[in-house]
Every structure is written in C-alpha cells, then in structure tokens.
C-alpha cells in the first residue's frame, strides 16, 4: 500500500494545499470547457431538456469510484485511510435540499459559480458573494443549529455497509445504474426538448 499519498507521508500539509490547488484548478478548467460556467446550461437539467450536468457528474463519480475500487483491489490504496465525512442523515438531507434550491434559483452550485465568476460572469460573482455570506451566516449561527447539525449520526457509513452487500457488487450495481441512467437521460432529453427560443 502506498496511497493515499498524504496519509503515508509522501508530502506535508503545505504541499498538500498546493496539490489541492492544482487539482482544483484543473477541475475548474474542465467544468468551464464543458460549458458549466453557464447558468442556463446548469439549470437546464432541472427542466430535463439538457442533462449534460447529470451525465458529466455521474461519469466523474463512476470513474472515481472504479479507480478507487481497482486501486484498492490491486493493493495500491488503503481505503481505510481515505477520509470520509460522517453520515448525519437529517441535516444532510436538509442541506441537500437547501443547496438544490439555491442551485435552481441562482443557477449555480458553489464550484460552478467560481468558474463563472473567474470567467467574468457577473451573476457568478454575485453568487460567490452569496455563498460567502451564507458560509459566514452559518458560522455565526452555528451554536444555534449545532444540535441539529450533529443529529442522525451514522458515523462513517458506506453503501456496502448500509446495504449489507459486498463492496464489488455495489460497485457493479452503481455501474449498471449509471449505464441505465445514461441511456434513460437521452430519452428524457428528447421527451422534454424545448424549442431553442424558449431556452
């Protein structure tokens, strides 16, 4: 085992931040090149006539999942050392709804808003200011919501643990689901296609 590199001491805290910046910038670049710096493109998934965001993000998730699975299977990566946020079911459900609401209303998620802002879109810049204001407000109000924030704690929970299924089988099922979703999304796009003038 020699990965995760940081956990095995290949580099320190400072270098890890530099690596995070390089990876983050690369992520932002490909988001922008995929057209995800546009609020119209992003919100189109909620109208079901352009599911590019769904397809790209699901592809990324499946690719990462397969990469991690095979690296672990080959003995290169120790999955037990990969950081996982704990599952806090109720606050995460509420948080997901709040983020989705903000996504539909503002046209961006936090990452894509940064991409939009950096490429000169004023709505993206306003969205980033909103995100920062939200982070500040949440931080200040944290003592009030601390109880709820820590509720529904399931600890480090993964799908294989929750479903009581072997890890490899869960990976296979997610891949099958992804293939089905990609095929289905093509049908959905054709079904809900809008004339260009309405977009």
């Amino acid at each position: 085992m020699n990965a995760p590199f940081y956990k095995f001491g290949a580099f320190g805290d400072e270098a890890s931040l530099v690596i995070a910046f390089v990876i983050g910038t690369g992520f932002g670049f490909f988001l922008e090149r995929s057209g995800f710096g546009s609020a119209r493109k992003l919100t189109a998934q909620f109208y079901l006539d352009d599911l590019a965001v769904f397809k790209v993000m699901f592809t990324a998730i499946v690719t990462a999942m397969l990469g991690v699975f095979y690296l672990s299977w080959l003995g290169i990566m120790d999955l037990a050392l990969v950081d996982l946020v704990t599952t806090n079911l109720w606050p995460q459900l509420v948080g997901g709804l709040v983020l989705g609401f903000g996504f539909v209303v503002g046209g961006y998620c936090p990452g894509t808003s940064l991409v939009a802002a950096v490429t000169g879109r004023i709505d993206g810049m306003v969205f980033v200011l909103g995100v920062l204001a939200g982070i500040f407000a949440f931080g200040e109000a944290f003592p009030l919501v601390k109880g709820f924030y820590e509720s529904g704690d399931f600890g480090r929970l993964t799908l294989p643990q929750a479903l009581h299924l072997p890890y490899g089988l869960v990976v296979f099922l997610v891949v099958v689901m992804a293939v089905g979703a990609f095929m289905g999304s093509g049908w959905v796009e054709r079904r809900f296609a809008r004339p260009a003038a309405e977009r």
Partner: peptide
Amino acid sequence: GPFTAVFWVGVVG
C-alpha cells in the same frame, strides 16, 4: 516550509 502554500497557491498560482 510554512510559506509553501501561500507562495505557490496565492502568489504563483
């Protein structure tokens, strides 16, 4: 050292 991240991310990056 302690200025690595701020230098390479903030100044150079």
